[in-house]
Computed example of a mutant assay.
Amino acid sequence: MFSSLSLLWSTRKRILLAIGASLSGVVLAFLLLTFLAGQENNASNWKPASVAAPSTLVSQAIEQNYQDAGEKLDINRVRVLPINSKGDKLYIFDFNTPSLCGIGGCLYVVYTESGTPVLRLLLQPRLPKGVPLFTVAGNDKTQSGYPCLVVAQTINPNDNTTENNQSKTELLSKSLYCYSGSGFARFNSHVTELSRKG
């Protein structure tokens, strides 16, 4: 009787150990996938246009957006952020030239791999440390095979100092842009407060 109970307990113990090991493997795989998805979603890997996008697309983007008769745009200054998608790959162009910047910000254009411009924005490129200008929204946020994009911008309210003038408040806006048939459109936006000593 005692040996059969011992054998039964030993069998249950092995089953519990096997279940525990399986669950540990599943949890480890989930954590790894979450980490990799977070890495992919952090769209901060700008690269030189000459290596990040097809040369015909780079030429087209420069021709369509940079029209300064006095000076030719140096292709080595243009940066591109490639974004993988289920449809055409997306390429975000940063022309990185004062000629395409103004009071409203600098021009950023998103093209599909087939050469269709799908989003044009004037953005302020300076953001708080660790905040990327463009981020790919979660895997569940796609439209027509294209991932939605989150665009970050700082907002400086007119009255951004406290009574003792020791800290300044900045607002961080994050807007969600999703493909809407012929291009990307803003779907929503939310604002958070950033406090800075200064």
Rank of each mutant, 00 (worst) to 15 (best):
R14I: 09
A18W: 10
G20E: 05
L23F: 12
L23D: 01
S24G: 14
F30C: 02
F30Q: 04
F30A: 03
L32C: 07
Q39E: 04
E40C: 00
N42M: 03
A43C: 07
A43Y: 09
A43V: 07
S44A: 04
K47M: 08
S50H: 10
S50F: 10
V51M: 05
A53E: 06
S55C: 02
V58Q: 06
E63K: 15
Q64G: 02
Q64K: 14
Q67H: 11
E71W: 11
I75L: 08
N76T: 15
R79S: 07
P82L: 00
N84T: 13
S85F: 12
K86R: 13
D88S: 11
D88T: 13
K89P: 12
F95D: 00
T97A: 02
S99R: 11
I103N: 05
G104W: 13
C106P: 14
V109D: 00
Y111T: 08
S114H: 12
T116Y: 11
L119F: 12
L119V: 14
R120Q: 15
R126L: 15
P128G: 02
K129L: 12
G130T: 14
P132L: 01
F134Y: 14
F134S: 02
V136D: 01
A137R: 07
N139F: 10
N139K: 14
K141P: 06
K141S: 09
T142C: 02
T142D: 03
P147H: 01
C148H: 05
L149V: 05
V150A: 00
V151F: 08
A152P: 13
Q153T: 14
P157C: 00
P157N: 00
N158M: 09
